[in-house]
Computed example of a mutant assay.
Amino acid sequence: MTLDAWFVIGAVVGLASTIVCVVAAVMKKKPNDITLLALIAVELFVVAYAIGSVVRLAGGQQLAGEAWEFWGYMFTAAMLPVAGFYWAMMERTYWSNYVMSAVGITVVVMLARMAQIWYGTGAIQASAPLQLGIGL
């Protein structure tokens, strides 16, 4: 798996969101602005990644794997924060923070799989400089 800037930034955002939500849950806090904003940050990253992926594909880059699989992961990763947000709005208990914390780490795992689909599976290797790969 090639570690590009998209994966690194996504991992930071997803893990930070998970940590914020776990801390709030352990402190038995109900979902609040901070935990919901952490979840929104994950969603905004996934949307930016989708746009960046379209730009990369339009610029001539190719997926090593199947396009339907990549976009299926992308769609699912985009829907997870929405589902977590909905859950938090419907169940206003500290348990919702645990559900929201699962969203961040799950999106990180999905980003790793999307990187494998984009670059091809194999050993972990860092791309030369960590670039967004937009090709501007």
Rank of each mutant, 00 (worst) to 15 (best):
E69G: 01
Q61K: 13
Q62L: 07
A41R: 02
L57F: 12
L63E: 02
A41N: 04
V99H: 01
M79V: 08
K28I: 04
L39S: 12
T106P: 07
T35P: 09
I19P: 03
I51Y: 15
M74S: 14
I105G: 06
G104Q: 02
R56P: 05
F70P: 09
A24Q: 07
V13M: 06
A11N: 14
E69P: 01
V82C: 00
T76W: 13
A48P: 09
A48K: 01
Y86C: 00
A48E: 04
E91H: 14
M114Q: 11
Y86H: 07
W68R: 14
V82S: 00
F70E: 07
F70N: 06
A11I: 12
G104A: 09
Q62I: 01
Y73A: 08
V23K: 15
Y73H: 15
T18Y: 08
T106Q: 08
V109I: 15
Y98E: 03
L15G: 10
L111R: 09
G84N: 03
I19E: 01
V99D: 01
V54N: 11
G52D: 12
G59H: 15
N32F: 03
A16Y: 04
Y73V: 05
N97H: 05
G72R: 14
S53C: 02
A38N: 09
A115S: 13
V109S: 09
P81S: 03
V42P: 12
R56V: 00
L37Q: 10
M100D: 04
I40Y: 06
I34W: 11
N32Q: 11
V20T: 08
E66S: 13
A11H: 04
Y98S: 05
A77T: 13
L57S: 08
M89W: 11
E69N: 08
R92A: 06
F85C: 00
A67M: 13
A16L: 09
M74Y: 03
L39V: 05
G60H: 11
V22L: 14
V54C: 05
T93W: 03
A41S: 11
K28P: 04
A77Y: 06
F75P: 08
W71M: 04
V26T: 13
L37A: 09
I40V: 05
Y119H: 14
I105Y: 13
M90S: 12
Y94A: 08
V26G: 03
F85S: 04
L15V: 15
L57T: 09
V55C: 02
